[in-house]
C-alpha cells in the first residue's frame, strides 16, 4: 500500500482520499439512519419499521431522499434569505471536514497531522455557527429560541469534551490521531501487552465525560432542548422544509457517526486489531471495517440513550456541565498527569 500510494502524485492520492471520504460518510450516515433510527427504535417500540423499500426496508433512506428532492422549498417571507440558505452548508461542511483527521489504517488516512486533535476540536465547534445562523436567519421565534439554546448548550459542553481528551493526549504523548492509535496498539497494561492498551481502560472517567459531552454536542436526548418538539416545535429547524430539512437531518446522523469515530480512535483503539503488527498491510483493508464496527457500537449507545431517557431542563443542563463535568475533567487531567510522571 505504501508503495502504491507513494508512486502517485499528490493530486491523485488526494482524489482517492476524497472518494474514500465520500464513501465513508454515505456508508456511515446511511447505516446509522437505517439500523438505528428506522430499525432499532422500531424494535424498541414493538413495531417493524420500514419493510417495503428493498429487503427489510433497507432502501428506505434512498426512497426518502427521492421524496424530499421533490418537495417544495419554502423560504419564509421575513427570513434573511442568505443566512437561511447558507446554514445547511456550514453544518454539513463542518461535519465532512471533521472526517479528515480520522485514521483508518497504517497507511489509510486522510491527513496525518501533529495537530490532529486540535483540528478535530476546532472544526467540531464550527457547526454551532451554522445552527445559530439557522436560528437567526429563519426569523421565527421558535427558531431563534432554539438556536440560542443550542448555542448555550454547545459551548457549555465543548469544554468537558476538550478537557476529557487531554488525558488521552497525556497518555499517548502526541496530538496526532494516528499516533494515538499506535500508542494504544503499543501500550501495555501492567506489563501485559496482548491487547495493547485501549485508553478506555486507563481513561475510563475521560471516556464517560467524552460520551456525555458528545451526547450534548449532538443535541440528542436527554440534551435535546434546542429541538424540544413539545416546547419549540423543532427549534432552529422549524422553518426549514423539504431538502434543506433533510440536510440538517442527515447532518445530525453524520455528525453522530463522525463523533463516535473520534471517540473510537481516542478511547477504543481505532483501527487496531490485537494480535497483528500495527504496520501490517492487512490492517489497511480490515482497519476501516474495524473502525466502522466500533462506530456502530458507539452510536448504538448514543441512540439507545436517546430513545430511552427523558429530556433535561435547561438549567439542569448547564449545571451538569459547569458544576460537575468541568471540575471532574480537570481532576482527571491532574490525576492522569501525576500518574504519568510519578509511576
Amino acid at each position: 500500500m505504501i508503495g502504491v500510494l507513494s508512486e502517485l502524485s499528490y493530486w491523485q492520492v488526494t482524489s482517492i482520499r476524497v472518494a474514500a471520504g465520500l464513501v465513508a460518510v454515505l456508508l456511515v450516515a446511511g447505516t446509522l439512519v437505517y439500523a438505528h433510527l428506522f430499525k432499532m427504535v422500531s424494535f424498541m417500540q414493538s413495531r417493524l419499521g420500514p419493510m417495503e423499500a428493498g429487503p427489510y426496508g433497507s432502501l428506505q433512506l434512498a426512497a426518502e431522499i427521492g421524496k424530499f428532492l421533490q418537495k417544495e422549498d419554502i423560504v419564509p417571507r421575513r427570513a434573511d434569505r442568505f443566512v437561511f440558505k447558507a446554514a445547511p452548508f456550514v453544518v454539513l461542511t463542518s461535519t465532512f471536514l471533521l472526517l479528515v483527521v480520522l485514521p483508518g489504517g497504517p497507511d489509510a488516512w486522510f491527513i496525518s497531522n501533529d495537530l490532529g486533535v486540535y483540528l478535530a476540536m476546532a472544526v467540531s465547534s464550527v457547526s454551532v455557527i451554522g445552527i445559530l445562523m439557522a436560528g437567526w436567519g429563519s426569523a421565527s421565534k421558535y427558531s431563534l429560541l432554539g438556536g440560542l439554546r443550542a448555542t448555550g448548550q454547545l459551548i457549555a459542553y465543548e469544554l468537558p469534551l476538550l478537557l476529557a481528551v487531554v488525558g488521552v493526549v497525556i497518555q499517548a504523548e502526541t496530538m496526532n490521531l494516528q499516533g494515538i492509535v499506535l500508542a494504544q496498539a503499543d501500550g501495555e497494561i501492567f506489563g501485559w501487552g496482548a491487547i495493547g492498551n485501549p485508553f478506555i481502560l486507563t481513561q475510563f472517567v475521560g471516556f464517560l465525560i467524552f460520551m456525555v459531552a458528545m451526547q450534548a454536542e449532538l443535541t440528542q436526548t436527554p440534551f435535546d432542548m434546542p429541538v424540544a418538539e413539545s416546547e419549540l416545535v423543532t427549534g432552529y429547524m422549524t422553518e426549514y422544509s423539504g431538502l434543506r430539512f433533510l440536510l440538517f437531518f442527515i447532518g445530525e446522523f453524520a455528525t453522530a457517526g463522525v463523533f463516535s469515530a473520534i471517540a473510537a480512535v481516542l478511547f477504543l483503539g481505532g483501527w487496531y486489531v490485537p494480535g497483528l503488527d500495527p504496520s501490517d498491510n492487512l490492517l489497511n483493508v480490515i482497519g476501516p471495517l474495524v473502525l466502522f464496527g466500533k462506530v456502530v457500537l458507539l452510536t448504538f449507545v448514543v441512540f439507545w440513550v436517546r430513545f430511552t431517557f427523558p429530556r433535561f431542563r435547561e438549567d439542569q443542563l448547564q449545571r451538569l456541565a459547569w458544576k460537575f463535568l468541568v471540575p471532574l475533567a480537570l481532576a482527571n487531567i491532574v490525576v492522569t498527569g501525576v500518574l504519568k510522571v510519578v509511576v
Binding site: T14, F96, L97, V100
Partner: peptide, 13 residues
C-alpha cells in the same frame, strides 16, 4: 487536503 475536503463537502450540498 483539509481545504479540498471542505470544498468537496460544500460542493456535494
Amino acid at each position: 487536503t483539509v481545504g479540498i475536503f471542505g470544498a468537496v463537502g460544500a460542493a456535494i450540498v
